[in-house]
Design a protein around this nucleic acid. Structure first.
Length: 806
RNA sequence: GCCGGAGUGGCGGAAUGGUAGACGCGCACGACUCAAAAUCGUGUCUCGCAAGGGGUGAGAGUUCAAGUCUCUCCUCCGGCACCA
């Protein structure tokens, strides 16, 4: 037995023992109840493991270690989300194949993860860029295609001119590229799409069935952006379409009650009708050139410029075209303006300047009429957007807005539900991603590969650079591109787009249940045993996109009866980021990145683990503080020394026993609520108390070490074995606490006079009010205060407080 | 602008409406030492010699009792943002 605590000697030792004895390898069959704990798998970047990974991995490691000790059959898997831009960019710079870089990085990650003693089942390790894995990502894509949920569309995509890549709406942050920050442009391109909007309603509704933090649910709902409103049709005056009916403009509004206040109609510049109107000879449009120029200009403007114009709204009237308000038959002018979005609602709005701020500003600028139809505001100053009483609205006058919305909708339109969520742009013009497994045949069109031809692997290329034309680097590999049509055997070309990063991570949690299956993405029986995931922890930054995408894939697979549950995750929590010492994000350029290896070397893995759990509330962002690590190391040193105090002649005293049982309770509960910092503080208090004792019993100390073991598994294992145990502490039982022992017999009763504490005394826990009152009154410090008045009221809180109101 | 979350010592942070500042860092003093480090002990919100007073972003309120509940306001962080 070593006298001094030397983590470098014991940590490696126990990691080897766990691995050899396969302690954390999970069986798919067990009489025990199952527990599936999941963390977001890391992207194996060249920078190596981040201290942030350590924080979230340790948290779930503590939870799963405790669950194992509580008798659960636990699955705690790990893998790598290895397709991604940094690796590809590295390949562009150096010419080294992404596959090779990825392999190298994974090796480093694996070693780092192992050095921290996480209780992963390493036999289930997965890697999204491994063909054996992405075969099934491609397979799932083909299912989407088969069911008509994957389709190709020519759309205006968000184009990052610097990354030379199309971005999903989700990847555009405030008009800028999420990765490089460059302003995003619009480009029209043929793209693969996934029809996530078909699942919008279920993605909202089923949130009621899961245990996510309220904040997460709200974010998901906001992103999907459901709104209920009315579709209204405005006919175009003096117009005739081919089937002899009048042409119409369809608008979407949530405020049908303001229909009588419409003074003009606005179309988005991209609206299809605009082109038709200009081309149609039946209209005498006097300013065609002006309109064309406006459309062209707005297309060239980036998102950023468009959104920056919040104050100045621009637009052009289509002179010669009028629309008819269905409610009163009056003619109103028609404008195009880019404050109206083409891809929301119908791409056209009815403008009610009196009751909408944007319309108000626009109307003021272009001198358009403003008609008040809801009373309660002062429209000569600003738009009145609240609900109120209808005026100037013929037979709807006097109705309340809520009522009028229903009535007007029934009479003139129909109610519909619209979502902000748009279909998912699923194409990337990049090399390092899953190839989309279809070919383009001149005869047969788009033809999916046959299942037996999956996986479709990536060809080796020399140049990874994306092209300015927006084509994937794969397009230049003619040998790979030219192929035979699986249907007719004729000449065909492969699709050269690859899938986005989100693809592989949208189903990885399913693969963990059956990672080596070559026949299916996962066996249904195994899925039935393991899913849903009992607890999923990850970063706040993945709460909208990854969570939404993976829920969508899961629901799709559920509809195909390939997975047994509607929702993948029963419970989702989030961790806060670890920031640099100054409070900024850790980054290479700031030079404030902490390498976990260094900390493990100087302080030990257990110290790093406990420190990261102790540093602050788990769900909040927190700055790294090198100074505070020493405190944790001191604590572990203290625990180490305590083992030499274990003695056969030691006797438990009541005080220590009470504290011990309180600590068991607190640590157990705190782990469940992720209050790791207070759990550790409770154990520090216990260690401090034990240190004061001349000797401690083996039993008491073993209980302490057991509850410490999920946090600091190596030192716990070493001490456990030093105490003469042949078994592993990782496989021992989580201790239970005795309710009776937690209750203290002696308590301190605080004596207040008018709510201020004036004295205190020791008493039996169940002291009665009258006894306490007499005792309190007899105290000289209390008498002094009571002399100042008459006792009006006495409040007694059993075992805690007695308060005299005078 | 809208929706969340948060404001507590020198610092990270604790507090089922019931002793504010647990635990840790730092600091001060003491012990050990030739000395230092390590370790251990004591102290550490603030004003005051003391008795006592004040104190959880600001202001009001509810209550015997408010960091905690209610209202108004300020600041910071996160998300969304011309969504009709």
């Amino acid at each position: 037995m070593q006298k001094s605590y030397d983590p470098s000697k014991i940590e490696k030792k126990w990691q080897t023992v766990w691995e050899k004895k396969k302690v954390f390898q999970t069986k798919d069959k067990s009489k025990k109840p199952k527990f599936y704990g999941l963390i977001e798998f890391p992207y194996p970047s060249g920078d190596g493991l981040h201290v942030g990974h350590v924080r979230s991995n340790t948290a779930m490691d503590i939870i799963t270690r405790k669950k194992r000790m509580e008798g659960f059959n636990v699955l705690y898997p790990i893998g790598y989300d290895s397709f991604g831009l940094p690796t590809e960019n590295y390949a562009i710079k150096t010419g080294v194949q992404p596959e090779i870089v990825t392999k190298k990085n994974i090796k480093i990650f694996r070693k780092q993860l192992k050095s921290l003693g996480f209780s992963f089942d390493w036999d289930r390790e997965i890697n999204t860029s491994d063909p054996k894995y992405f075969k099934w990502t491609q397979w799932i894509f083909l299912k989407f295609l088969e069911k008509g949920l994957a389709y190709k569309a020519k759309i205006d995509i968000n184009w990052c001119p610097r990354c030379k890549i199309g971005l999903a709406n989700e990847e555009v942050i405030g008009g800028n590229c999420e990765r490089c920050g460059a302003p995003v442009e619009k480009r029209e391109k043929e793209q693969w799409m996934l029809a996530i909007t078909k699942y919008a309603e279920r993605l909202i509704k089923d949130l009621d069935t899961v245990d996510y933090l309220e904040q997460i649910k709200t974010q998901q709902k906001n992103w999907i952006g459901k709104s209920e409103g009315t579709l209204l049709k405005f006919q175009i005056s003096n117009s005739q379409s081919q089937n002899n009916e009048k042409m119409e403009i369809e608008v979407f509004t949530t405020r049908a009650d303001t229909l009588f206040g419409v003074t003009y109609i606005v179309l988005a510049p991209e609206h299809e009708l605009v082109k038709k109107l200009i081309a149609d000879p039946q209209f005498q449009i006097s300013n065609k050139e002006e309109i064309k120029k406006y459309i062209k200009d707005s297309k060239n403007r980036t998102e950023i410029e468009r959104t920056n114009e919040e104050k100045e709204k621009t637009g052009v009237e289509i002179k010669g075209v009028k629309a008819i308000n269905p409610a009163n038959g009056e003619e109103v002018s028609v404008f195009i303006a880019d404050y109206v979005l083409a891809n929301y609602g119908t791409g056209a709005v009815m403008a009610v300047p009196a009751h909408d701020e944007r319309d108000y500003k626009f109307a003021k600028k272009y001198n358009l009429p403003i008609i008040e139809v809801i009373s309660g505001g002062n429209i000569s100053e600003k738009a009145f957007i609240d609900y109120g009483m209808l005026i100037n609205s013929k037979n709807f006058n006097g109705m309340k807005s809520e009522e009028a919305i229903k009535a007007i909708t029934t009479q003139f339109g129909k109610s519909v539900v619209k979502y902000k969520l748009r279909d998912w742009v699923f194409s990337r013009q990049r090399y390092w991603g899953e190839p989309i497994p279809v070919v383009h045949c001149e005869k047969c069109g788009i033809v999916p590969l046959k299942e037996k031809d999956l996986p479709l692997k990536l060809p080796k290329v020399k140049n990874y650079e994306p092209t300015d034309t927006g084509e994937s680097p794969l397009a230049s590999i003619t040998k790979w591109v030219n192929t035979k049509c699986p249907k007719c055997g004729g000449f065909a070309k492969r699709e050269t787009d690859t899938m986005p990063n989100w693809a592989g991570s949208s189903w990885y949690f399913l693969r963990y249940t059956d990672p080596k299956n070559t026949k299916k993405f996962a066996d249904f029986k195994k899925l039935k045993y393991w899913t849903p995931i009992d607890w999923y922890n990850g970063g706040m930054e993945h709460v909208t996109l990854h969570l939404l995408y993976s829920r969508f894939w899961h629901k799709f697979l559920y509809d195909l009866k390939l997975v047994p549950t509607k929702e993948p995750y029963k419970k989702r929590t989030t961790h806060g980021m670890i920031l640099g010492e100054g409070g900024e994000k850790m980054s290479k350029s700031l030079g404030n990145v902490i390498n976990p290896d260094t900390i493990v070397k100087t302080f030990g893995a257990d110290t790093l683990r406990v420190y990261e759990m102790f540093m602050g509330p788990f769900d909040q962002a927190i700055s790294w503080g090198e100074n505070n690590i020493v405190g944790v190391r001191r604590f572990l040193e203290k625990v180490w020394k305590l083992q030499f105090k274990v003695s056969k002649i030691a006797k438990t005293n009541e005080k220590l026993e009470t504290l011990l049982h309180k600590t068991i309770k607190k640590v157990g509960e705190d782990i469940e609520s992720m209050s790791f910092n207070t759990a550790i503080s409770a154990m520090m208090i216990l260690a401090n108390e034990m240190e004061k004792e001349p000797a401690i019993t083996k039993k008491d100390f073993e209980i302490f070490i057991t509850i410490l073991s999920p946090f600091a598994p190596h030192i716990a294992e070493e001490i456990w074995s030093n105490l003469g145990n042949k078994s592993l502490i990782a496989e021992t039982k989580w201790p239970s606490f005795d309710k009776k022992k937690i209750v203290q017999e002696k308590v301190t009763i605080m004596v207040q006079v008018n709510g201020k504490i004036r004295a205190q005394f020791e008493a039996e826990r169940d002291i009665s009010e009258s006894v306490a009152k007499n005792k309190a009154i007899s105290l000289p410090e209390v008498q002094k205060w009571l002399a100042k008045g008459e006792i009006k009221k006495v409040i007694f809180v059993s075992g805690k407080i007695i308060n005299f109101v005078i």
